[in-house]
Every structure is written in C-alpha cells, then in structure tokens.
Amino acid sequence: MIKIGVKYCGGCNPRFDRGAMFHSIQSRLEEAHFEHAKEGVNYDALLVVSGCTNNCASYKQYKYNKGVVHVKDSGELDKAILELKRIMED
C-alpha cells in the first residue's frame, strides 16, 4: 500500500475547510495509507493542504520518493486525486 504523508499549512486565514478537504481525498483513495507527515519517515508521496494560494506550508524537511501534491483551493479536489492516482500507478 502506498504511504502518503499529509502536511497542513498553519491555517491562519483558510479560504476552505482543510480538514474536510483531506477527508474527502482520503475517502476516495482507500487504497492509500495516509498519516501526518513526520521527519525521518520515508513516504511515497506528500499531500500538502494549504488554506490559501500562498501555499506557505513547509515540507522540504520530509522524505518522499515519487512526488508532492498540493491542494490550495476548494476546487482542486479532483485534480489532487488524479495526481495522487498517477503517483500510485507509477
């Protein structure tokens, strides 16, 4: 099972519900394992959920092999799922 680290921005002025966004993604990708990103852990991919287009969440400290998927707008749900599926298929 593919392992995806989840990283949120700090949520100072989010324009959408970041938690709900993540849960929507998670519910549509049951074949992936998601966990809050931790330093020192190897992930297949990172999912960075930022509450606005500034996308200020820091994520360079985490290890990942295949790629990073960013969500920074409420309209990016399908796009994020598609990108994650592509990573899973690689």
Partner: peptide, 10 residues
C-alpha cells in the same frame, strides 16, 4: 498537525 506549521520552528 493542522496548526503546527505556524506554531513551531527549527
């Protein structure tokens, strides 16, 4: 996790 990016630093 939803706030730690702002609340912590190295």
């Amino acid at each position: 996790p939803e706030y730690s990016d702002l609340m912590t630093a190295k």
